[in-house]
Each structure stands twice: as structure tokens, then as C-alpha cells.
Design a protein around this nucleic acid. Structure first.
Lengths: 208, 208
DNA sequence: GTCTATATAACGATAGAC
DNA sequence: GTCTATCGTTATATAGAC
């Protein structure tokens, strides 16, 4: 059996290990309540090592958000730009991805985290808003505009309608996180029903 | 100038004064962070007086929720049972009341409060779920069933669809509370757009 | 003077500092 | 890891209404 050396220089792996540990800790205990020492221990490094890669606690959380959530948003945007078919089909595709992301065990706790801690850490709220929330909202608004331009959706306010589409998704995940998995929130029932509801709400006059 | 006596016996007025002070404090600082002493001071009583009227801190919050939010839910239920006209018109009426309640300065902070603190105080989460959230959800589901039975709405899952209707309302208020009043959340634009979206999403085939 | 609403003061658990 | 301060909670004293 080989013994692990006391110190290992692994410049490449450290940040992601620290972020993984941070995500877990922040999700479970909240931002304010988790001590960087716990994160360090979980990541198998010393507290000082964290400061080597991140300026401070808030910067660590921002990096996690940027690493975990932002790429998912980028993925959605990429789908929109690459897609060639009808906008209802595009919406179906995007919705499937978005609902999977939002309900996932990594992202779901983040929603609660932001709601809970935003008041005490305004810069994190601001970061989340500009980098993720606002971006996602306008991505869906863009999709709606595409549908309107192609005559597939009726005229409406794209940003407001984007909220009608996304917010149930977010709230469903958030409620599951807050109240536990209640039968009312059953995603297998909820998501198809909501998607159908959305497509009908958007349909151009005379179409189904 | 007359000085207020050190003690005043006002058995009737105390509970509501304490609850008002509690609502303000809990909304501003959160449940865990507010000290009962601050509530007492704001209400003009001593800490022990609170215990005369409420079993403990959690019980005080429950009483506030029961006093502030539950009556509003009852009001919505009453409207449904009293209403005689078409279900779309009923939905318009209910939605107007519900959106006013949810966006109000008393209720909006409560949403954030529940999301933030439910994890650490499971009995409060449970109380809120059964007494308020679940109740509201099924009230809207009932309304949708009424529309389906009368042939005004298409067939759908009432509880799931109720989420599609209510959750944007809640999330819009919650987001306003978390990120501040952003132009995207402008309620004057959002609510009419969402209501129109909902009515089209529910419309029976062949109707607008 | 009696009854009880209310304040003062003490207790004990728990979290945060060092 | 220990010590201390804080805060929810409870016990006791007292003031006000009748």
C-alpha cells in the first residue's frame, strides 16, 4: 500500500475540487452559515489554499455559479441559434433541457440559496441576476420573438411571457426544495401539462 | 405632559400589536435572526408578555400567518362559491384579488421568509403548506374544474395547471423581493400579459 | 382585598469567540 | 476545546382594575 504524501501539488484539479465541496456545503447549510474551513476540509486542502484560487467567500460562490449554472444557460442559447425547425418544436426542445437543469440536484438548492441569502449579500444577488436570471429570461424572450416573427406565435410581450413560461418551472423546483417532494409537485405530471399549457397560450390565432 | 404608566392592562389589544410588530420584524430580519426582545420592544411590552398570548416564537409566526394570510385565502374561496357568471370572468376576478394580495407589502416578504427559513423550522414549513399554499393551489384547481365541467376550459390536470397559473405570480413577487424592483418585473405589464396567456392556455378547443 | 395582566429577573441551552 | 454572551423560555414579584 502506498501512502498519500502530506502535500500534493495539483494546480489543475484544486479549483474544481474546492468548488464541488463549496457547492455541496453552501447548498446544505446556506452561504452565511458555512465556514470556509469546512469547505477546505471537504476538499482536502487547507483554508489558505482556497484563498490561493479565490479572492474571498463570495468570490468562491460566484465562481461556482459561473461554473455550474452559466454553462447550462449557454447551452440553451446555443440550441436556439442552431435550431432550424418550427418554433414550437424548438420550445419543446429547450423546455426539456431547461426543466432537467432546474430540477437537478445541483441547481435546485441554488435557487433556494439565492433567495435566502440575496438580502444579506447584495453583490451575489446582482451577480446572479445579470449572469444567470436575466440572461435566461431574455433567452426565452428571444425564442418567443422568433415565433412571433415567423407567425407561429401570437403577438405578446416577450419578456413578460417568458416569465409565464419559466417561473412555474422555477417555483416548482423551489417548492420541492422548501416543502419536500409533495404529490402536487410530481414532475412527471407537471412538466407535460405545463408545456401543453404554454404552447396553447402562445399559439397564433386559428392554430392549436 | 402626562407620563405613560409603567404597566397598562390591555388584554384585547396586546395580541394584535404583538403580531404586527412580529410581522414587521420577521419580514425585515428573518425568523431566526429576530430576537423576541425586539418584537416586545416594538410592541411596547415586555418579553414575557409575548408568552402570555403565544406558546413560543414559532407559534407567534404561525399566528401571524393565520391572521394575515389565511383570511385572504378564505376571501378567494368565498368569491368562487358566490360567483354566478362564466368561469373566465371568475378567473379574471380571482386573479385580480390574488395578484394584489401576493404583491402586497405584507405578503411579499412572507414568501421570502418561508423559503429562507423553512429548512431550519420544519413545523413552520408544514403549517404554511397545509394552511396556505396547498389550500390556495386547490382553490385554483377547483376553479379550473368548474370551467372544464361547464365546457369553458379544455380538459387538463387541474392541480398541475393551477401551478402554471399561480407560480408566475408568486415568483414575480419573490423575484421583486430578492432582486429589487427590476424593469422586467413591472407588474402593470406582467399581470395583464399573464392573464391573457392563461386564458388562452385554458381555452376550450375552438374558442379564444 | 382579590384577581390577573404585566414587568423584572433568573435559568439553561447553544452558538460564537478566543 | 473551553469560555462567554446571547436569547428563548420560565418563575416570581408587583401594579392596576374592580
Amino acid at each position: 500500500m502506498t501512502f498519500a504524501p502530506k502535500r500534493q501539488r495539483r494546480k489543475e484539479a484544486r479549483p474544481s475540487e474546492i468548488m464541488a465541496a463549496g457547492l455541496k456545503a453552501f447548498s446544505e447549510r446556506g452561504f452565511a452559515a458555512t465556514r470556509l474551513e469546512d469547505v477546505a476540509e471537504a476538499a482536502g486542502v487547507s483554508k489558505a489554499t482556497i484563498y490561493l484560487y479565490f479572492d474571498n467567500k463570495a468570490d468562491l460562490l460566484k465562481a461556482i455559479l459561473h461554473e455550474v449554472v452559466s454553462p447550462r444557460m449557454g447551452e440553451l442559447e446555443a440550441i436556439i441559434h442552431a435550431f432550424d425547425g418550427s418554433t414550437p418544436d424548438l420550445l419543446r426542445a429547450i423546455y426539456g433541457r431547461a426543466s432537467a437543469v432546474v430540477s437537478s440536484d445541483e441547481v435546485r438548492p441554488i435557487l433556494k440559496l439565492i433567495v435566502s441569502e440575496a438580502g444579506n449579500f447584495p453583490d451575489i444577488a446582482k451577480f446572479y441576476w445579470t449572469e444567470i436570471a436575466s440572461r435566461g429570461l431574455h433567452t426565452f424572450a428571444q425564442l418567443i420573438e422568433r415565433g412571433i416573427e415567423r407567425g407561429e406565435f401570437r403577438r405578446c410581450d416577450p419578456v413578460a411571457t417568458a416569465q409565464s413560461i419559466i417561473f412555474p418551472l422555477l417555483m416548482n423546483a423551489l417548492a420541492t426544495e422548501v416543502f419536500g417532494p409533495m404529490p402536487e409537485f410530481n414532475t412527471d405530471k407537471f412538466h407535460p401539462n405545463h408545456l401543453e399549457f404554454v404552447l396553447r397560450g402562445l399559439a397564433a390565432n386559428g392554430e392549436t
